[in-house]
């Protein structure tokens, strides 16, 4: 498909990227392009300027702090995470990235693009909400941190607004995590997915594909009955499509919540 005419820039620094994004209302950041280029083919978005983040070294890399916090640059690809020894500090990250699509998409798709596109069927929004990640956003006004459960605002909408960039994602230490999904074919788009993360006393569950943003639940305990009750009480009203009815998605949410918690509990 021939794309609509577009201008292209590849700055080397975050400040320069912000200047370019701020200078034109029709400018858009380009990360891995695994969503944006297709969206442009379909004319669902027609940016006037693409600001390619590929050359910005500050946006790449995975660092493991002395307190066990992982800092992931927004331009880190799924493959980078899967291959990274540091990222194994939180094993669920690489495990879930390895379930996204296929080798080619994993080689180019970035953790920042995954959350900034906030497609409700994406893998990483519920995962990052469940494990309590923090997003760092920069704009003309400076830098701020937003917890993952406040980052996702609506379908394709996040706290990183026009003219702003997500620069990094911080993940606290932990290992008692689980992820369960029913995808369309192996490693395909999820029909429903659930991420769970347990600490000694608390359980955090985030359900994807059932609403515009991941649905965060904090059941009173990790007992099956408490998990089922939390999902019931959420009164989910999921969408229906050719793959699943709303009723079936509601059913999957409950079953997958139990599976995700069981997987997380095994890793205590």
């Amino acid at each position: 498909m021939l794309l609509r005419e577009v201008e292209y820039a590849r700055p080397a620094r975050v400040q320069e990227a912000l200047r370019l994004l701020g200078a034109n209302d029709g400018a858009r950041a380009l990360a891995g392009g695994q969503t944006l280029i297709n969206v442009m083919k379909a004319r669902a978005a027609s940016p006037d300027v693409l600001v390619d983040l590929a050359d910005i070294a500050e946006l790449r890399g995975i660092e493991l702090g002395s307190d066990g916090t992982l800092e992931l640059g927004a331009m880190t690809t799924y493959t980078d995470i899967i291959d990274s020894a540091e990222a194994r500090a939180r094993p669920i990250l690489g495990e879930v990235c390895n379930q996204i699509a296929d080798v080619q998409v994993r080689n180019r798709g970035t953790i920042g693009g995954n959350v900034c596109s906030n497609d409700p069927t994406n893998h990483l929004p519920p995962l990052l909400v469940a494990i309590g990640a923090t997003m760092t956003i920069v704009g003309q006004a400076g830098e701020r941190s937003v917890p993952a459960d406040e980052f996702f605002l609506g379908v394709y909408m996040t706290a990183a607004g026009p003219g702003e960039l997500l620069t990094k994602i911080s993940v606290p230490p932990g290992k008692s995590d689980g992820f369960a999904s029913v995808p369309i074919g192996k490693d395909g788009t999820c029909i429903v997915n659930v991420a769970a993360s347990l600490t000694n006393r608390t359980a955090r569950l985030a359900i994807g594909c059932v609403d515009a943003v991941p649905v965060l639940l904090t059941p009173d305990s990790t007992e099956d009955a408490a998990v089922r009750k939390a999902v019931h009480d959420a009164n989910l009203d999921p969408p229906w499509d050719v793959h699943a009815s709303a009723e079936y998605r509601r059913h999957l949410a409950e079953v997958l919540a139990l599976r995700a918690v069981a997987q997380a509990a095994e890793r205590r």
């Binding site: 590849r10 392009g33 280029i37 297709n38 693409l50 080798v103 080619q104 998409v105 080689n107 180019r108």
Partner: peptide, 19 residues
Amino acid sequence: CSVLVDGTLVKSCMMLAVQ
């Protein structure tokens, strides 16, 4: 459309030539 770019397997319909 898969090709290797600097040794990395990509789908070349999701990349701009300028990239």
